[in-house]
Structure formats: C-alpha cells, structure tokens
C-alpha cells in the first residue's frame, strides 16, 4: 500500500467500510465516558453548574476551527495535486463545520446568559465565530450553486484559503475595535483557569467529539463519492440512450 492507493476512491471506500465500525464503537465509548465524567465532575465554585456547558462548548468550538483548518488543507490538496478526493473531503467537511460552529455559538450564548447576564457580546472570539459561521454558510451555498462538482472545487478552494487568511485578521481587528469602543470591559471572556478535575472530562469530551467528527466526515465523503458516481453514470446514460436501451435488453436476456 502506498500513498497513491490511499488516494484512489475505490480503495478509500473499502478502507472506510473496514474502519468505520471500529471508529463508531470508539466514539460511543468516549461519549459514554465523557458524559459520565462531565456529570460527576465537581462544580466550579464560581460558575456552579454552568461549568458543565463547557464540556460541550469547548469541543464544539475546537471542531468548528479544526474543520476549517481541514478544509484549508484539503483546498491546498485540490489546488496543488488536483486530487478529487481532496475536493470531496473539503466539500464533506463544510456542513459539519457549520453544525459545530452553530453549536459553539449556541452553547456559548446559554453559558454567557447566566455567567455575564447577556446572550451575546461583540467580543473578538464570539465575533470571529459568527464570521466563521457565515463563511461556512457561504461556502455551502456556493457548493450548492455550482452544479458541476469538478469545476466547483478549485474556485471554492481559493475562497476557502482567502477565508483562512481573513480569520486571524478579523480576530485582530475586532480586538482593536473592542479596545476602542468598550471603555471598561465588564466581562472577562477567558474565564477562570481550568481546574485539573475539570480538565480530564473536557479532554475526554473533546476526543469524543473529534472521533464523532471523523466518523461523520468519512461517511459524508463516502456519500459524496457515491453521488459523483451516480452523476457520472446518469450523464453517460443521457449521452448514449441507445446504448442504455441495448444494455437493458441484454440484461433481460
């Protein structure tokens, strides 16, 4: 087995079928352990019960960013090597990233309300995540609008990479904007430093989310490969209707 075997879609499909059950089992175990640890962990003396939101908020935020990083790497793959599997990977990751980013925004809001008394602040971190969410939606909309997936991949890859350049600039500019507009910051967004008793469940949950993402991503990539095969076969059938008819005849015979 070498790199080129791995890059072959058929080989990739066989690999997915083989490893998927194991990954699903690991994900379920990690979620069970993570949830158990999350609800038996001691309460934070400052945050009380709401600290438990952190166990889903931080992993969701981590995957929201990780997923964009993955898309950026896949985009380089489809621009440099023009490999269809890189296109498939980038396309399959976008909706997943949007889901995790939405989840991070939602859990952040329900964490913020009891902690700081507001659902939303225009803080650098929250604002960058909102922008990240909009970028995911834009990329998904573009995938849906450009109908030929082979032609769509490279322009979208360029957009993804420009977005990756943009995110740190947004983070920086919103930080500056905040120092200009908020005379005295009411909120300390970093939160208290994490106690080790809370760190272990957090890490287990983060790992569970990551494995869940890998499972979803592989399944979604498989769907995308199937979708392209269906598309290619339909186009061949449309190009040669007589051949299709004769093939159907021979099949009957």
């Amino acid at each position: 087995m070498n790199f080129y075997d791995l890059a072959n879609p058929s080989f990739f499909l066989r690999l997915v079928t083989r490893v998927l059950p194991w990954l699903v089992a690991i994900t379920l175990l990690l979620f069970a352990a993570g949830l158990y640890l999350a609800f038996t962990a001691p309460q934070d003396y400052q945050q009380g019960i709401t600290v438990r939101i952190m166990f889903v908020h931080v992993p969701a935020a981590w995957l929201g960013m990780f997923c964009y990083g993955l898309m950026a790497i896949a985009s380089i793959g489809s621009l440099v090597w023009r490999h269809p599997l890189a296109d498939v990977s980038a396309k399959a990751a976008a909706p997943l990233g949007a889901c995790f980013t939405f989840l991070a925004l939602f859990t952040g809001a329900v964490w913020g309300q009891p902690m700081w008394g507001t659902w939303w602040v225009w803080d650098a971190r929250l604002t960058s995540f909102l922008v990240l969410f909009i970028m995911y939606l834009g990329i998904i909309a573009l995938w849906k609008t450009l109908d030929d997936p082979n032609k769509a991949a490279r322009p979208i890859a360029i957009l993804t990479l420009v977005g990756a350049l943009n995110l740190p600039i947004i983070k920086f500019s919103v930080d500056l904007w905040n120092t200009l507009h908020q005379p005295a910051s009411v909120f300390r967004m970093d939160g208290p430093t994490i106690h080790p008793a809370l760190l272990v469940p957090l890490l287990v949950m983060a790992l569970a989310f990551t494995f869940f993402f890998v499972v979803m991503h592989l399944m979604s990539m498989r769907n995308e490969i199937y979708r392209r095969r269906v598309r290619a076969m339909r186009m061949r059938a449309a190009a040669a209707p007589s051949a299709r008819a004769s093939l159907a005849e021979t099949n009957k015979a």
Binding site: I134, L137, G138, L142, N166, I169, I170, F172, S173
Partner: peptide
C-alpha cells in the same frame, strides 16, 4: 455579496 461581506469586515 454574502461571500464578500465576511472578508470585508476588517
């Protein structure tokens, strides 16, 4: 416009 707005925030 939707694609460009996030890029033009800075």
């Amino acid at each position: 416009a939707i694609l460009v707005v996030p890029l033009s925030i800075p």
